[in-house]
């Protein structure tokens, strides 16, 4: 007798991802769909996709989706969640979306303790617009707007938004993970599960920052990009639980 051991998660549509080979978005999409299914919350989930490479996320997720303007995800999610507090509301945002143009919306949503979950995909570049400097671009890292590499004296150093959010009283759970290796992918899924459990228990703002390779704009092979996450990116953005005040209020 045949036994199916791998299939498309319930909350992913039967559509081909447009993402580049080696990009982390496809993996993160799958993990998110798996978590929605395992926690049995997909039918009451409302997602807010960003502007950026994941702007087309609604082509893939088979849940209600409401598109936000660039950076405004946390404000739109706030409006939805306040009207429908028993639904599960999440945003999916890139580094430019959340840590540059949407910094204010994000910080204040966290500070108010909005009971939503934010998936923050950090690949250190503006992917969709063609590889300009992102707020999280590393010192020395090349981009189309930092010829010769990001110079902290000229361009400012990379910003650690997750750390900033952690000091707000309203944030409850913030973890930084990556999707460049099997081990890290597993850890990311665990973090996503915990973030949604935080929301399900009504404990306030939860966020998972996911370091995600962008071989196209980093101008690397997929293998080198995955390595670069470990060897370079995590030096500035270490993988760790940044804040966890869930305590014993949720099971792990």
């Amino acid at each position: 007798m045949e036994k199916k051991v791998f299939q498309r998660p319930k909350y992913l549509k039967d559509a081909v991802f447009h993402y580049c080979p080696g990009c982390g978005h496809s993996i993160i999409h799958r993990l998110l769909a798996e978590v929605l299914e395992e926690l049995d919350i997909g039918d009451k989930a409302i997602g807010v996709p960003p502007a950026g490479c994941a702007v087309l996320a609604y082509n893939y997720f088979d849940v209600d989706m409401g598109e936000a303007a660039h950076g405004r995800g946390a404000a739109v999610a706030t409006g939805i969640k306040r009207i429908l507090p028993d639904r599960i509301v999440f945003t999916y945002q890139g580094d430019g979306d959340i840590a540059a143009i949407g910094t204010a919306e994000t910080i204040h949503a966290a500070n108010r303790g909005e009971n939503v979950t934010v998936i923050f995909v950090n690949n250190g570049t503006y992917g969709m617009t063609g590889g300009q400097m992102a707020p999280t671009t590393l010192p020395g890292q090349n981009s189309t707007t930092t010829p010769g590499g990001r110079d902290p004296d000229r361009d400012g150093p990379p910003i650690d938004l997750s750390q900033m959010l952690a000091i707000t009283k309203g944030s409850t759970y913030i973890e930084r993970t990556a999707v460049n290796s099997y081990k890290n992918i597993k850890r990311t899924k665990k973090a996503l599960t915990k973030a949604f459990k935080t929301q399900m228990a009504g404990l306030g703002f939860s966020l998972v920052e996911i370091l995600s390779p962008c071989p196209t704009n980093w101008k690397m092979s997929s293998v080198d990009a995955a390595k670069w996450v470990d060897e370079t990116m995590t030096k500035i953005f270490p993988l760790k639980v940044i804040k966890d005040e869930t305590g014993k209020r949720i099971d792990n």
Binding site: I46, A75, R82, A104
Partner: peptide, 26 residues
């Protein structure tokens, strides 16, 4: 009823967008 003093005019209108998506008169 929900009242939010937003952090900015931009956030306020985007909260209204979210509330409207969720079906409220906003």
């Amino acid at each position: 009823g929900t009242f939010i003093q937003a952090e900015s005019e931009i956030a306020a209108i985007n909260m209204v967008i979210g509330a409207s998506m969720a079906g409220a008169r906003a």
